[in-house]
Nucleic acid binder design. Structure first.
Lengths: 306, 306
DNA sequence: TAAAAATACTCCATAGGTATTTTAT
DNA sequence: ATAAAATACCTATGGAGTATTTTTA
């Protein structure tokens, strides 16, 4: 049985005339006759009772025609579904974003994304890099925005922007009035870090002197907002990524944010499986992110290589 | 798009492995790969994300696979339906029977028919020959049992049996005690006929002297039972076909039934469209009728020729 | 007799096979 | 290094065409 045979069957049922049915199918009458006969032979059933003046479905013919219509409808559905999917970034997509980025970047990203791709049903998953990558590999995410580099192999990375780190100082501290803070300034100060698993914790540790300087008694916040409150309470210093700093309110609520002397930054990128079939969409999204970043971060020109 | 392509698609979805899927479909791996790739190209969509170690459906792939399964299920349904229909005399069939035959023959026919073909859902339509034939031609009947010959062309006739006519005499009449009744006996007696349209009326008229002897004032009953009552009331004579006569009760309720001298009879046959696709079923039914007739009629041997 | 379906036959597009290469772990 | 998918290339089945015959209303 072939789909064409079913098409011919339905055409004959509709036209009740082999010649007209054949025209409607854009084939010759003998072709249609032969195929229909073959179908009848394969099914072991007579589908139409025909004379040279009339063509009428038999009882079993009616049933088969009915089913055949449904088959063809569903085939057409498949075509429709796929045609709809040709449009990039439409339908369900899931994007992972690390917690130290999501709340600060998404307000910049989502409005233009929604404007450009209204049919996109984006699901944002906020989690630490390790778990985001695990989910990428098990196909439960389409892409993820994390700090680069990811040690993971068989992933493709699209660098998006470099995000400088700032130093958050307790409001009353003398450094709160410095123009910039150096690594030496922090040498003897308590540093507050995020909890284990956050990449930002590791980056901060690396910058501020490594694990050696990390006293076991340190506070371990699970969000930058908590960390910010701890700084405001005078418990110590911390590093904040640029996007986490309200643009015009660098000194607010007992926290003074000062530039870090030197070039402390993290690189944020979009990653996906190397085999992900819609790299075009990844690139589209990457470009959209780059185009709508605030001035506080440095976009990396065009995400099309490596 | 072809059904085989959809089969390959579903097989790959099930096995998540091209080689195994190919084996399951009894084709080579390259064949399956090629066909699936062609399907993807035609649909303009990637259905599986594959490495050499893993094969996983994409989002759109899941949707298409789902539809494809339904398509294949329905195709299988078609096969099942047709396989079921290969068994003769099962499912819905409609049979027309003339009113002067139905109530007397069906009690003989239906029980063995039900026994031999329990899955048959027979619809019996009782009407006069003319309308039965009209319904045959418009395909709203599969077959009909009528008196032969039918003038209708493009119908096939299967003779079933010859049914002798008897004379029903009013109980008190002198002929009620005759051994047999001759045409001459009836010469001066009133004859009762069925209403217009019944073939039995025409046959009785033909036997008893034609339209010339039919006074306009005659009673026109619409059933043999009414006619029998009229005879019992002494209003006249009539012809009754053999089956209409209770076997062991030829003289009952004021009606004496006597043989007709000579060979007055009607021939009953099964008719269907010449193009009817299940002549085998017609023959099956004909044989079944013949095999279960009461002794009062003469079956016509084997219904397989004209 | 005329209109329509069925048959005869020819051709080529393509599904399927085998052998091989590419790829990714 | 190895297992698996992709590619190259060949073969042959069968879908589709034209020309013709058969059928039946």
């Amino acid at each position: 049985m072939t789909l064409n045979e079913l098409r011919y069957l339905v055409a004959v049922a509709d036209h009740r005339h082999f010649g007209k049915a054949a025209s409607a199918c854009f084939v010759s009458q003998p072709t249609l006759s032969t195929q229909l006969k073959k179908l009848e032979e394969q099914l072991g059933v007579i589908l139409f009772e025909r004379t040279n003046k009339s063509v009428r479905p038999t009882g079993i013919g009616e049933q088969v025609i009915d089913k055949a219509r449904r088959v063809l409808d569903q085939v057409e559905d498949i075509r429709t579904i796929c045609r709809g999917d040709r449009e990039p970034l439409c339908g369900a997509r899931s994007l992972g974003v690390i917690p130290t980025l999501a709340p600060y970047l998404l307000p910049w990203l989502l409005p233009p994304l929604r404007r450009a791709h209204p049919a996109l049903e984006l699901i944002v998953v906020e989690d630490i890099t390790e778990r985001l990558i695990a989910r990428l590999k098990e196909h439960s995410l389409d892409g993820a925005m994390v700090a680069l580099p990811t040690s993971a192999s068989d992933l493709i990375e699209r660098p998006l922007f470099d995000e400088p780190f700032y130093v958050a100082c307790p409001g009353g501290h003398r450094l709160a009035r410095a123009r910039a803070v150096t690594l030496a300034d922090l040498e003897s100060e308590p540093i507050l870090y995020l909890a284990d698993g956050h990449c930002l914790r590791d980056q901060a540790l690396a910058i501020c002197g490594g694990a050696a300087r990390d006293p076991t008694g340190d506070f371990r916040a699970t969000s930058l907002e908590t960390l910010r409150q701890l700084v405001a309470a005078g418990l110590g210093f911390t590093l904040l990524p640029a996007l986490a700093i309200p643009e015009d309110q660098r000194d607010l609520a007992g926290v003074a944010v000062r530039p870090f002397a030197g070039t402390a930054k993290r690189r944020i990128g979009l990653v996906c499986r190397a085999t992900y079939p819609h790299l075009d969409e990844i690139d589209l999204l990457a470009q959209l992110v780059i185009d709508h970043l605030p001035a506080s971060v440095r976009p990396l020109r065009s995400a099309l290589n490596q």
